[in-house]
Computed example of a mutant assay.
Amino acid sequence: MKKLWAEHRGFIVFFALMFCFRSAIADWSDVPSGSMKPTLLEGDRISINKMAYDLRIPFSHISLYKIADPARGDIVVFDSKAADKRLVKRVIGLPGDTVAMENNRLLINGQKVDYQPLLAGDQLELLPGKNHSLRVNSPSSRYANFDPVKVPADHYLMLGDNRDNSADSRVIGFVPRNELVGRSRGVVLSLDYDNYFLPRTERFFKELK
């Protein structure tokens, strides 16, 4: 071990620091499904700011210092215990909010969210303080309605932008704050899974809304 350390300590220290950096400061994540279409596509690789909300002990979810709270409309990466995997969704309901959905139209704290039509049948959802694209396939989907629910303290209501094809808080429930990994605001690169994994260069370094 001493010989190994003496010969390769530079590489060992480099990789240790790199893993700590990716664990606690910044990382990237693949998008494996279409639950966030049209914002994110299968094959996108997104950046993750792991210090957006908390300074954490590397390789853990233990917070040393709270930096900020998630804002409505943030695209958040979290390790869901309920789903038993890492997910990417959008923050819709903040702690204390009352949220309902009627025919794929949100009501937040009793106020109806406005919607505007976009090209290709997509919509623009005008969340308070944040506008973003949305995909709705059928107003009669089993996901299209839920009764008013109040978001508990230290929890968030998350929804996918592809509303009829997203296993989000309508399936897994509210997301605890301590499951959050970080916030994403950009696509780093993108590969087209349906076209021989060729790069989608138009999506490289694309800012997310």
Rank of each mutant, 00 (worst) to 15 (best):
Lys2Tyr: 12
Arg9Val: 10
Gly10Met: 12
Ala24Val: 02
Ala26Gly: 07
Ala26Pro: 01
Trp28Leu: 13
Pro32Ile: 02
Ser33Lys: 06
Ser33Gln: 03
Gly34Arg: 02
Lys37Phe: 15
Arg45His: 12
Ser47Thr: 11
Asn49Gly: 04
Met51Cys: 10
Ser60Asn: 06
Ser63Phe: 04
Ser63Gln: 04
Leu64Thr: 00
Asp69Gln: 11
Asp69Ser: 12
Pro70Asn: 05
Ala71Leu: 12
Arg72Lys: 09
Val76Asn: 01
Ala82Leu: 08
Ala83Asn: 04
Lys85Met: 13
Arg86Phe: 01
Arg86Lys: 13
Arg86Gln: 09
Val91Lys: 02
Leu94Pro: 01
Gly96Arg: 07
Met101Phe: 04
Leu106Tyr: 07
Gln111Phe: 10
Asp114Phe: 13
Asp114Ser: 14
Gln116Met: 15
Leu119Arg: 15
Gln123Arg: 13
Gln123Gly: 06
Gln123Lys: 14
Leu124Ala: 12
Lys130Ile: 05
His132Trp: 12
Arg135Ile: 09
Pro139Ser: 10
Pro139Phe: 10
Ser141Met: 07
Tyr143Glu: 06
Val149Cys: 07
Val149Ile: 15
Val151Thr: 03
Pro152Cys: 08
His155Trp: 03
Met158Ile: 05
Gly160Ile: 04
Asn162Ile: 06
Arg163Met: 11
Asp164His: 05
Ser166Gly: 00
Ala167His: 03
Ser169Thr: 04
Gly173Arg: 00
Phe174Lys: 00
Phe174Thr: 00
Gly182Tyr: 01
Gly182Asp: 01
Arg183His: 05
Leu189Thr: 11
Leu189Tyr: 15
Asp192Cys: 08
Asp194Met: 11
Tyr196Pro: 08
Phe197Pro: 06
Phe197His: 12
Arg200Ile: 11
Thr201Ser: 14
Glu202Val: 12
Glu202Asn: 14
Lys206Gly: 08
Glu207Cys: 12
